[in-house]
Design a protein around this nucleic acid. Sequence first.
DNA 1: CGCATGTGTGAAACTGAGTGTCAGGCTAGA
DNA 2: TCTAGCCTGACACTCAGTTTCACACATGCG
Lengths: 205, 205
Amino acid sequence: MTGLSTRAIGRAAVRGELASIALPRFFEAGFDNVTFDDLATAAGVSRSTFLRYFGTKEDVVLFAFDPLGDAMSAALASRPAAEDEWTALRRAVDPAVALLTREPDDGLTLLRLVWTTPALWGRLHEKQASWRPALADRLAERSGDGAVSPLALRTRVMAALGCLMVAFDSWVNDNGRDDLDALTDATFAALASIPSYHQVNGRPS
Amino acid sequence: MTGLSTRAIGRAAVRGELASIALPRFFEAGFDNVTFDDLATAAGVSRSTFLRYFGTKEDVVLFAFDPLGDAMSAALASRPAAEDEWTALRRAVDPAVALLTREPDDGLTLLRLVWTTPALWGRLHEKQASWRPALADRLAERSGDGAVSPLALRTRVMAALGCLMVAFDSWVNDNGRDDLDALTDATFAALASIPSYHQVNGRPS
DNA sequence: CGCATGTGTGAAACTGAGTGTCAGGCTAGA
DNA sequence: TCTAGCCTGACACTCAGTTTCACACATGCG
């Protein structure tokens, strides 16, 4: 019943506070031009302390995406059992879309920073990959446990999160002109009906 | 007609030589436990020189994947025009499968190193992403230029390379027991027919 | 043949990320 | 009040990656 100790709650709060102080610096100066010393000074703590809360500089920025893993798993689990799989996956990524469009300017700025910094882009994809197992588990539950091969489920989860990433990419590249939600619909639609694919096994030379 | 100068050829050869000296060290000791000093000493050059050939440690390992971008583009371009898109994409990733299965032990060892080192895994995905534009261009050519939206094409290319990555993942995780080619077939098949997806736009609540 | 130019190499100094250690201070519980 | 444990700051350290400088070597030209 210990759940979250008072320590852990405090720690999470401090992390959020530090991240919110650090983000504007990154936006202004660019990710690579801000040092831990800068962040620590801005936050009024020592470099040591800042580093204790965020093991890497990337974590400071990507902290914003942390809740998405659980949120998307929960969203998928709450879809009606009768709903088809791809629609359920489309709805599962809604929390991600919502996170970035709640404050469209902030969301776009954040995503732009991630997209223009290879280290951040890479880490976001690592994080995204870490969400997959839980989503594949939810998918297995809803389609009867042995009905579809785990490999196929993992592939479809990969595809769904990939659709989200392509939508992010388009959104950043057109500077938020299009609606992120609509872009996500479009990427999911692009995989929904892959035109006439026959004989995967059996070598179509 | 300058193409490749004699300089560039020499440089590429040296890169290959240095990489082939370095790889076994990584395999033995683990990526993080090998320093540039170690590599330089092993290769009989100075740290400066080694760093001039590979800007980062990740590049030393991922050097092996460098030719894949062009190889996959060429493979896709050479598919018959009548072939359906998804099959063409499946064939486009053949060079990647071939690269890793030519010497199955070496390929598996290399991929295991990449998969157990977050930094390498992330960089491989960056590199993979850098291959996408060219592949999307080849896809646009074969399906009449304006016929399918660029967003849809980019999404399908992402999905195809994602299938490859999931196949890699499975191959590493079962220690090469299954055939990588067959695993790739399976992941592509998992997206070929996404079961009954209706109405992406129009909010299926 | 002698000289200038460009390129590859090595040495060294420097910045900054990330790790580990240690001592002091604050808080909570007995 | 005393004690045990955590949080903090200071410091030293390793290593990646950048930059600068000087030297060696090759090639092209007069």
